[in-house]
Simulated scan of single mutants.
Amino acid sequence: MRLLIMGPPGAGKGTQAKGIAERYGIPAISTGDIFRANVKNKTPLGLEVDRIMKSGGYVGDDITNQIVADRLAEGDAANGFLLDGYPRTLAQVEALDSVLEGLGQSLDAVICLEADTDEVVARLAKRAEIEGRADDTEEAIRVRQETYVKETAPLLDVYAKRGQLVRVNGLGSVDEVGQRIASALDERG
């Protein structure tokens, strides 16, 4: 299974990605996790990413595309993967298409978790409090929501036209949403 999981920040992508990866025996690849590890380790990439994330912005395509291409070339992704947090722009869709073509692969489905903006802002504010995430101030959260609507939501149209989009209600318990995703993917075959 080669999958993407999309949806607004705070819709539960990371939580659901773990269950999906386990169900299909594929790695869940989160660009956010890769970036946060670099920030924590204060790498040159991490310092740049930290500055961008604290302002509520997204890391540029050139950096992100290379990180994803390198990760998809690793052995554990040869038989499938779940990308979480990528692609976020049309240029990243094109870069991913190119990487997959070079690997002789294609996407099986794109899962879109749908959730109300105020609900996800509340989720992220609570997560920031619990986990001490400096990048999750309410202002930064709202900037990321607006950026998602402007830049990332149009990608859903691309995947819908390709017949790859699977829309799932992202509100409810972790198990309820996970079951909706499993049922929707099973329906696709």
Rank of each mutant, 00 (worst) to 15 (best):
D186Q: 09
L3C: 09
Y159P: 14
M6N: 00
D84V: 01
Q105K: 11
G189V: 13
V158H: 15
A77P: 14
R71P: 10
V166T: 07
G170C: 04
A28L: 07
R127V: 02
N169W: 00
G10E: 01
G60T: 10
Y86E: 07
D70N: 09
N169L: 00
G163I: 02
L82G: 12
Q179K: 05
S98V: 03
L107C: 06
V177Q: 06
A182V: 11
A182K: 09
R2T: 01
P44Y: 06
S98P: 06
L100M: 13
R123D: 00
K42W: 02
V68I: 10
Y86N: 09
L165C: 03
L156Q: 14
A184V: 01
K126C: 06
E48M: 11
K40R: 05
M6H: 01
M53T: 00
G163M: 10
P27W: 12
E151D: 15
R88N: 13
M6V: 03
E176Y: 04
V39A: 11
D116G: 13
D108H: 14
P27Q: 09
G14W: 00
A115Q: 11
N169V: 02
L82D: 11
Y24P: 08
L4A: 03
T43W: 15
D33P: 12
A153G: 10
E114V: 06
R51H: 07
L3N: 08
G60Q: 05
S98R: 12
L165W: 06
G163F: 14
Y58H: 10
N79K: 14
G132W: 02
G189F: 15
L100K: 11
L107S: 13
V174A: 03
L107V: 05
R71D: 04
A160M: 12
D97E: 08
E94P: 11
F35P: 14
K40P: 00
D186R: 06
L83P: 08
E146K: 15
R23Q: 06
R51M: 02
K150H: 00
K42Q: 15
R2K: 04
N169S: 02
Q16H: 01
R142F: 14
Q164H: 11
V143T: 03
I111E: 06
T137K: 04
D84Q: 08
N65M: 15
Q16A: 04
L124N: 11
I130D: 12
K42H: 09
A115P: 08
G178N: 03
T147A: 15
R144C: 09
G46K: 07
R180L: 05
E151W: 11
I181C: 00
S106Q: 13
I130V: 13
I52D: 07
D70P: 01
Q145K: 02
E119I: 04
E138N: 00
K54D: 01
D50F: 01
P9M: 14
E101M: 11
A134R: 11
E176Q: 11
G46V: 07
N38V: 05
G12C: 09
V177K: 07
N65F: 11
I141P: 12
V68D: 08
T15Y: 03
G7I: 02
D118I: 03
E101N: 12
F81K: 08
Y24R: 06
P9I: 09
Q164Y: 01
A160P: 11
D135M: 03
G80W: 03
D97N: 13
G172C: 07
E187D: 15
P87S: 10
A160D: 15
Q179H: 05
D50K: 10
E114D: 14
D84T: 05
A122H: 01
T15V: 09
